[in-house]
Simulated scan of single mutants.
Amino acid sequence: MIKVAIAGIRGRMGSTALQAITGAPDMEVVAALDYKYEGMYYHDSAVTEEPVGIPFYTSLADLAADTQPDILLDVTDPDAVFHNVKEAIALGIHPVVGTSGLTQDHLAILSELSVAARLGGIIAPNFSIGAVLMMKFSAMAARYLGDVEILEMHHDRKLDAPSGTAVKTADMIKEVREPHVQGHPEEQEHQAGARGADVEGMKIHSIRLPGLLAHQQVLLGGEGELLTIRHDSFDRNCFMPGILMAIREVREQEHLIYGLENIIE
């Protein structure tokens, strides 16, 4: 049985992860890491003082000593996750991260720690299998259609922009695309930000509106044609298969993996 601790269990992604893991025959949630509620329990989507359900801990070291988890699934925020993952690696707990917004410096540090400890970890900007395939297909297409714009759309409670998925998509495309400026060479931006963020000449546009969940389209232009690759997440249940895949795979690794595309053939 794979023993999982969840950081961020009270959030939207945390509740989705709890549902996925609870329904898996080879996994169990043994603890929750939180910044409060020490000594309390999570039961039926509520915090209770009754000793039923999943125990809360504010210290990962105490959590590890009491429950010996194999995995720390972190779906909190970038400010907390970096510290959590560093401590998890030091404690010999495999980190699986579903939080976007980590910097390249953070990723480099965590990768070094993971390799030194020979302890596998997975950081997934997106747990949706469909979204990962969208990124892979976009990188394939960018070999032939190198003028690219990325439009990502999320709910208005999302903190980071651009999204981790958009950044990861651009990173994958950068590997196959020659850097160049797109559009008219004398283009003028009369309103700051109108052309979006610039990544080696590619543009990323972020939309935040109520009613959206997680959506992205990649536009690839060529002479007389346009290829659009789009993915839509309408329900957080679409993240469940990717969460379970990452938890099962991470124990077989001895380094940090950035992106589920690296474990999907």
Rank of each mutant, 00 (worst) to 15 (best):
D66S: 12
G92M: 10
I207Y: 08
V115S: 11
H205Y: 12
L244C: 04
L72I: 06
E175G: 05
V52Q: 13
M245T: 07
A5T: 08
E149P: 03
T228Y: 06
L159V: 13
Y57L: 05
L60G: 01
E261P: 09
R143F: 03
H155K: 11
V176D: 05
A124F: 09
Q216F: 09
V47N: 04
K158C: 06
Q19H: 12
D79Q: 14
Y258Q: 11
D147T: 13
N237G: 15
E178H: 07
H155T: 04
Q68W: 09
A246Q: 01
L256D: 02
L110G: 03
T76Y: 03
S163Y: 05
L102I: 05
A61Q: 10
S128E: 09
D235Y: 01
F56P: 01
N237H: 11
A214Y: 12
M240D: 05
R248M: 00
M13I: 13
L151F: 15
D79I: 14
P179C: 06
A197N: 10
K136S: 13
E152K: 00
I243F: 02
L226T: 14
G221R: 15
A108H: 11
A131W: 02
Q19V: 06
I89M: 03
A32M: 05
H231Y: 15
P125K: 07
E189L: 12
D160T: 13
I173V: 14
Y57E: 03
V218Q: 06
D74L: 01
F137P: 00
P162I: 05
E28L: 11
Q217R: 15
V132M: 09
S45T: 10
T99I: 08
P241Q: 10
V250Y: 00
V218I: 14
E186Y: 11
F82D: 12
V75C: 02
M13Q: 11
M202Q: 07
R248C: 01
M245S: 05
L226Y: 04
V75Q: 03
Q217H: 14
V167R: 12
H190W: 12
V81G: 00
G221H: 12
L91V: 06
E187C: 08
L33S: 01
L107I: 15
E187A: 12
H180W: 02
Q191Y: 15
V218W: 08
D79S: 10
D62I: 08
G196A: 09
N84Y: 09
A90E: 14
M1V: 12
S206F: 05
L107N: 04
Q182W: 01
G211T: 00
D70V: 08
G164T: 10
G196K: 01
L72V: 08
F56C: 03
L227N: 03
P78R: 10
S163N: 06
A197M: 04
A131L: 07
K168G: 01
L107T: 12
S59I: 08
I150T: 07
S206H: 08
H184T: 04
L33K: 04
V250T: 12
T165L: 15
G121P: 06
H94N: 13
D34A: 15
A192C: 07
D62L: 12
G23E: 12
N262K: 15
E261I: 03
I109P: 00
P78K: 09
A194F: 11
H190D: 11
E261A: 10
D147C: 06
H184N: 14
V250P: 02
R251T: 15
Q104H: 13
L151D: 13
V167Q: 11
S163K: 04
Y144L: 09
S15T: 10
A88D: 05
